[in-house]
Design a protein around this nucleic acid. Structure first.
Length: 173
DNA sequence: CCCTGATTCGC
DNA sequence: GCGAATCAGG
């Protein structure tokens, strides 16, 4: 892949937004984080104003979202990802996944506090990032939870709980 | 070990 | 100019 004007432009934009080099690389595709960093330096925009300081993500929690904590029929639907959250606060409270995608768990979701997801691109996933799908695979912006996985499973502790709850819960009713 | 950006240097 | 390898650090 070569640095077309468009790609350079997007690089500048994302870098200015405070995304890390690896995240930018993942979004652009076809380049490594090293390539991104190298390009950033050549463009001389290494000094990122004062925006989000990379690691140690912002702890800002979407206040609107944390309003009712439980039930609230979860905020479903794909909230045009992207801008929505760069915040990862492990304590964040909000369910963010498509009901269409996992209809069987929509009932149990009211019992579970789901942390805001990191919304990683497919290529950003590693063995320790939650692979719970977020959004519609057919629509742009589809990504994965990306939170740290629990006991080595494919999902973070929260999504594991969801996954383990069959539609017909065992606690008789 | 995970991740970050910075730097070097052969291509 | 490019980016892998490497370095320094949280």
């Amino acid at each position: 892949m070569n640095w077309t004007d468009e790609r350079v432009e997007q690089l500048k934009k994302l870098w200015a937004e405070g995304l890390s080099a690896s995240q930018i690389a993942a979004q652009l595709g076809g380049v490594s984080r090293n390539a991104v960093i190298g390009k950033v330096h050549r463009l001389k925009l290494s000094g990122r104003g004062k925006t989000t300081s990379s690691q140690t993500r912002s702890k800002k929690v979407n206040t609107a979202a944390s309003s009712s904590q439980r039930s609230s029929s979860a905020t479903v639907g794909h909230m045009s990802s992207r801008v929505v959250n760069r915040s990862v606060g492990a304590t964040a409270l909000q369910a963010e996944y498509s009901t269409d995608l996992v209809p069987m768990v929509t009932r149990t979701v009211t019992d579970v506090v789901v942390p805001i997801s990191r919304k990683l691109e497919l290529v950003e996933l590693s063995e320790r990032t939650c692979k719970w799908p977020v959004g519609d695979p057919l629509l742009p912006g589809f990504n994965f939870c990306g939170n740290d996985v629990g006991e080595g499973g494919p999902y973070c502790t929260y999504h594991s709980r969801l996954a383990y709850q069959p539609a017909s819960d065992r606690r008789r009713r």
